[in-house]
Amino acid sequence: MTPAIFWQLVLGFGAISLVSVGGGIAVLPEMHRLVVEVHGWMDSADFARRFALAQAAPGPNVLVVGLFGWHVGGILGMLTAVLAMTLPTSFMAFGFSRLRARLAGRMWLRIVERGLVPIAVGLIAASGIILAQGTGTGWLPLAVTAASTVFVWRTDYSPLWVLGAGAIVGLAFL
C-alpha cells in the first residue's frame, strides 16, 4: 500500500463516517462515489459484488469498507479503511455515553430516549425488507423469509436453526 492510498483511505472513509447518521450503510452512495467515481479503484459491478459478499458474511455491515481497503492495499488497506470508518465516531459515541451516564434520570433525557425507540425498531424492520429484496426472486426465497419471520417472532429457539435450514434449502433448490 502506497502512502498516497493510505491517506486517501484515511481521509475518504474518515470524512464519510462523520456524516453516517443512521448507520454505516446509510452512506453507501457516498462510498460508491469515493471508491468508483473519485479514485476509480473498481467499477460499479465489482463494487456491488463486494457489497454482496460483505452482506452475506456475518458481522457489522460496515465491514464492507474493509473489502474496498483490501482491494487497494491488502490486509493493511483493510485495517486502515475499517479504522478510518469506525474510530472517529467511536470517540464521539464514548463521549456521549459518558454524558448520558452523568445526565441519567433527567426526565427530558428519558423522553428523548423513549422517543427514539420506535425509530430503532422501525429501521430494524426496514433492513429486513431490504435484505429480503436482495435475496433474489421467486416464491422460494420469499417462503424461507416468511417461515423464518414466524419462527423467530413466535418461538424462543435460536435463530441459528432457521439460518441452517436456509442454507440447506439454498443448496438444494436455489
Binding site: 425488507i129 419471520t149 423467530v152 443448496l171
Partner: peptide, 21 residues
C-alpha cells in the same frame, strides 16, 4: 446458493425480531 438461502432466512430473522420487539 447457500448464501442466498442463508440471506433469505436472515431477512426473516430480522423481521421476526422487529415484530417481537
Amino acid at each position: 446458493a447457500v448464501l442466498a438461502g442463508v440471506g433469505a432466512a436472515a431477512a426473516g430473522m430480522v423481521l421476526g425480531t422487529a415484530a417481537k420487539m
